[in-house]
């Protein structure tokens, strides 16, 4: 896809996502990371076909989704599923797990009677680790823990054989102690059903773990500023913003975290989306800022020799990752 999405607000038009291009491969694990307001959720909602891009296209099997209708559109809707952040809000509180999971099966005519539905739901529950399934069929959301609810949400997404699952902060609201098991579940499902999973998260450590054999896209103020393998993006960030994030993140290791090299930013203030800086939107904060270049020209997302893409004039010109240029490698 290649999309832009603007929102009209009383204060003016906000470009929440500005020219984001993303191609998803089959059975890929990809993470979109960034801070609040970077447009990662808006991008996810456009990917899932829930928001219409103001300009640009969302292509599914080479067809523009927003021009398709009828059966074809239904097929897209089935093929791309969303798992929401808040498992307390995304499940209907007056429906049992069976009701929640069987509804899409009936709707998409995957089953025709109750017996078939019970069988299919049982299998789904088993697949997402809610065992023994019989114990969960008749439970209501309030009888489940946060982690179990999120497993139900994942099962619901799986029920219609999707090709892509967009998981927006899907592990942020569950306890730290069980996040890894949910991420492992998503990765296992990716392998088993060859489904592509887009995980949207603000947590770089979660992104690193989830996409350790996939890609990470770092977003800043509506644009993708770096896209590449997890190993490179986190291990040796090419964009100065990614480098700042990696350097700033506190780690659960006292010696390491207290001796991490910092990236000094020129300003702590995040610009308003209503008044975006000229040129590269990161230039007022960037330690690699060059006057006459960064504040004038908008950097494109360009490939660098190690195979990733970065939107930074300086890193591309120097053919070196920002982490090295700043000296935090």
């Amino acid at each position: 896809m290649n999309v832009t999405r603007a929102f009209k607000t009383p204060g003016g038009v906000i470009k929440a996502v500005d020219g984001v291009s993303l191609a998803l491969g089959q059975s890929e694990a990809i993470c979109l990371v960034g801070e609040s307001g970077c447009g990662k959720t808006t991008t996810g909602r456009m990917l899932a076909g829930l928001l219409r891009p103001t300009s640009g296209q969302l292509l599914f099997e080479s067809k523009d989704v927003w021009t398709t209708k009828g059966k074809e559109l239904a097929r897209f809707r089935r093929s791309v599923q969303l798992v929401h952040q808040d498992p307390y809000a995304s499940l209907n509180p007056i429906r049992t797990v069976y009701q929640t999971l069987s509804a899409p099966l009936f709707r998409h005519k995957k089953v025709s009677d109750r017996r078939g539905a019970i069988g299919a739901v049982t299998e789904l529950l088993q697949r997402v680790g809610l065992t023994p399934p019989a114990d969960f069929l008749i439970k209501y959301p309030h009888q489940l823990s946060g982690g179990q609810r999120q497993r139900v949400s994942i099962a619901r997404a799986l029920s219609v054989d999707p090709r892509v699952i967009v998981a927006d902060e899907a592990v942020s609201m569950v306890d730290v102690s069980i996040r890894i098991s949910l991420l492992n579940l998503l990765l296992a499902l990716r392998d088993e059903f060859r489904v592509t999973i887009v995980l949207i998260t603000h947590d770089l450590a979660v992104a690193r773990y989830f996409a350790r054999r996939g890609r990470i896209g770092v977003m800043y103020l509506g644009r993708v500023v770096e896209l590449g393998t997890s190993e490179l993006v986190v291990g040796d960030p090419a964009h100065p913003y990614s480098a700042a994030l990696v350097a700033a993140i506190p780690e659960a290791d006292p010696t390491l975290t207290r001796s991490k090299e910092r990236v000094e930013l020129r300003s702590a203030e995040v610009p308003s989306l209503l008044r975006l800086p000229s040129g590269c939107t990161f230039h007022p904060r960037c330690p690699l800022f060059e006057e006459g270049l960064c504040d004038v020209r908008v950097p494109e997302l360009l490939g660098i020799p190690d195979g990733r893409e970065v939107a930074c004039h300086v890193a591309v010109r120097e053919r070196a990752p920002a982490a090295e240029l700043i000296g935090v490698r």
């Binding site: 730290v176 996040r179 986190v234 993140i249």
Partner: peptide
Amino acid sequence: RAVPRVTG
């Protein structure tokens, strides 16, 4: 053991 890290 449940917490992933960014470096190391």
